[in-house]
Simulated scan of single mutants.
Amino acid sequence: MRLIQIVLLTLFLVGLYIVALVWPGAMNGPMSYMEVNGPVAAEQLSVFWYTVVVSAFLMLVVGGVFLYAIFRFRAKPGQDFKVPEQTHGSAKLEVALIVASCLLLLVIAIPNAKALFYVNEVPAERKAEAIKVIAIGHQWWWEFQYPDLGITTANELHIPVGRPVDLEIKSVDVLHSFWVPRLAGKMDAVPGQINRMWMQADKVGSYQGHCTEYCGDSHANMRFLVMAEEAEGFDKWVANEKKDGAKPSAVEEVNGQRVFMKGCNSCHTIKGSGAMGVAGPELSHFGSRTSLGAGIFVNNDENLINWIKYPKKMKPGNLMNLEQVNMVVNDKDVRDLVAYLKSLK
């Protein structure tokens, strides 16, 4: 009976291991690391499965020997218990086991080390075509700078399909971690340090990213999107991003800009408007973004009104606070401010 319990427990643990293996990625969900769309993610997935296979082989071998010992040397009913002859080690056996363990470690370590070097830097033959991006972690949003293009944006990273993206990853406050599971693995953003990696999207689409290093109240809400576009669409986006923010035309937009310049400008930049704040996201083309609050809300009028009126309810720990910049606004001012921000396309 006890033997049956041991076998059932072993089967349960193996099943639990398999579930734990596939569940975090949900296999084909938006944050899945099992369904990849780029060479870096593909390399990492292949190393992952290689490590799993080697580990499973070792588990089966060790577990098989363990189960064999249980069956082969178990006490028989009615058998007198006798202590077997005791030995005190074998130098040859110990050295052999150490050597075998080191060889098995190398079998796993070499492919993993190779993948680490591959992920760290764009291959030499493709550096000339790479897009350089500096990803900067803030509490709790992402800033994306394109130094060669003179562009700064936030929370939505646009890239051309089929071209490598050379990433420098840093932080201005606390530890963060950059992760787009379908395109590349995780890389920490460390204050005072620059970490590097690269990624590439092979298919057009919107890929979800997330901070994966606990960084405070809204760590779970520190998301972002990677928008992979064909070359023509990316070039149009770049040309538009280089322009100044749209000038207000309608009456409500003009009043909205006036409200913005009463305090919002101390934290946000809108090119061409005189607003040059750097504490918060760059907003020159905010109206063209699909998301709000670092990827947690759809960018529509209702969410934007609530974001302005109740920032800490919308996102715990939100550093945005109108009172700190002595802004007093009524409902009409908020609606006009929303109209102005939505016009920035």
Rank of each mutant, 00 (worst) to 15 (best):
Cys211Arg: 02
Asn195Met: 15
Glu230Thr: 09
Ser206Pro: 00
Ala250Cys: 07
Val238Leu: 11
Glu232Trp: 06
Asp235Asn: 14
Lys243Ser: 08
Ala231Phe: 14
Met197His: 04
Ser206Asp: 14
Ala231Tyr: 12
Ala220Glu: 08
Asp217Ala: 05
Ser206Met: 09
Gln200Arg: 04
Cys215Phe: 06
Cys215Ala: 06
Asp217Phe: 10
Lys243Ala: 09
Ala201Gly: 05
Gln200Met: 10
Gln200Lys: 09
Ala231Glu: 08
Tyr207Leu: 04
Ala231Gly: 11
Thr212Ser: 12
Trp198Ser: 03
Ala220Val: 08
Arg196Ala: 11
Gly209Glu: 02
Arg223Cys: 14
Val238Asn: 07
Thr212Lys: 14
Gly233Glu: 06
Lys247Val: 13
Ile194Arg: 10
Asp235Pro: 14
Gly245Val: 00
Gly192Val: 01
Thr212Gln: 06
Asn195Asp: 14
Met197Ile: 02
Glu232Tyr: 15
Lys247Trp: 07
Glu241Cys: 12
Gln208Leu: 11
Arg223Val: 13
Asp217Glu: 10
Tyr214Cys: 05
His219Cys: 07
Ser249Pro: 03
Cys211Glu: 10
Ala239Gly: 04
Pro248Asp: 15
Tyr214His: 13
Ala220Gly: 08
Tyr214Arg: 15
Gly245Trp: 01
Glu229Ala: 07
Asp244Pro: 02
Ala228Leu: 08
Val204Gln: 10
Gly209Ile: 01
Ser206Cys: 10
Met222Glu: 12
Lys203Met: 05
Trp198Pro: 00
Ala228Val: 06
Thr212Glu: 09
Arg196Trp: 03
Glu229Gly: 09
Arg196Gln: 15
Val254Leu: 10
Asp235Leu: 12
Ala250Ile: 01
Gln193Met: 14
Phe224Tyr: 10
Gly209Ala: 03
Tyr214Gly: 10
Val226Asp: 00
Trp198Cys: 04
Trp237Val: 03
Lys243Arg: 04
Ile194Asn: 11
Glu253Asp: 10
Gly233Ala: 06
Gly245Phe: 01
Val238Met: 04
Leu225Met: 11
Ala250Phe: 05
Gly245Pro: 00
Lys247Asp: 15
Ser249Phe: 11
Lys203Leu: 12
Gly192Asn: 05
Gly192Glu: 04
Gly216Cys: 03
Glu241Lys: 14
Ile194Ser: 15
Asn240Ile: 03
Ile194Tyr: 05
Met197Pro: 00
His210Ile: 08
Asp217Pro: 01
Glu241Asp: 13
Cys211Ile: 05
Ile194Trp: 11
Ser218Arg: 04
Val238Arg: 02
His210Ala: 15
Val251Tyr: 02
His210Val: 08
Asp217Leu: 13
Met222Trp: 02
Asp235Arg: 13
Val238Ser: 11
Lys242Asp: 03
Ala239Pro: 00
Asp244Tyr: 01
Ala201Leu: 10
Phe224Glu: 02
Asn221Ser: 08
Asp202Tyr: 06
Gly192Arg: 02
